[in-house]
Amino acid sequence: METRTFETKYLDKWKSNLDSCIRCGYCYEHCPVFKDTRWESDAPRAKMIMIYGLLSGKLEPSTYISDKLSSCFYCGRCVAACSSGVPLNEIITDAKRDFQGTEFETPGTTSVTNTDCALCLACVRSCPHEAREFISGKIFTDTVKCQSCGLCVDICPNQAVATLLSYGTDRSSLNQEVATFLDKDNAKAIVFGCNWSYFPDLQSSAMDLEKDPEYKILINMCGGRLEKPLLLEPLLQNAWGVLVACCPDGDCEHDGNVKAATHVAGLRELLKEMDIAEDRIQLVQIAHGDKTGFQAAIDTFMETVNQLGPLNPR
């Protein structure tokens, strides 16, 4: 495929905004990508510094930089945390625009479709960002329009859509985390938290406890992306319970919370049919940034789980 030369055509207009970024770093503590890798190069501040490097000619464009700039879930937490009012989301989109069609273009966290695609076009119809198109018998993702919300990944009946760089938010990474945690002596429950409702403290530091903690919080990009098999997996591995935290009604732009509620309700029914206490799986709605509510919900859930005791379905 023919490529074009990289130019900072769309990025040029942001020069003065990038000058006003005071590089305080307050953005990176909120970034799910940074929280996964803990490399500063993956944080929003680094994205801005790299773009400044491209604009000032101090950095040459590369696939590596394109990959870093395309790795964004558009949660907007960096924008909310920015003390200088830098519109990071818009700048990142323009960076992707400048990289699009060049030899350096990479998908980053945007979704790709593999050969298992049955061309049902459900992803094309459901994409809220109009990023997926059906052209000449194939499905393409517009890397500029895609905001890595993951709706297409979730909706695909053939599991043919994936994000190549998921930063710990994809099914297999979450399953792996579940398995690793539940292998520990004191492990009892898994808490799935939504990045948009509340991302807990103590994610950049860790307690070195004598005893292993009783529960593990795993952050995903949206409650709606938690499929039933994933929610059931901890219980299959003898966890005592699973708590799902998602946004309150009306807060989720993808209605992911509605979907999460449906999944959890279905699984509660299933547990009931199997004569297992349905309260072993629960859903709680947490408003954006409600740290106290999140912790209180976990404490109440753990109380219930401890009363129920270990699960031994066989």
Binding site: W39, E40, S41, A46, I49, M50, G53, K58, L59, E60, S62, Y64, I65, K68
Partner: peptide
């Protein structure tokens, strides 16, 4: 890390 972009950051 040794990529020029990392070193710049």
């Amino acid at each position: 890390k040794t990529d020029p972009a990392d070193l710049y950051v």
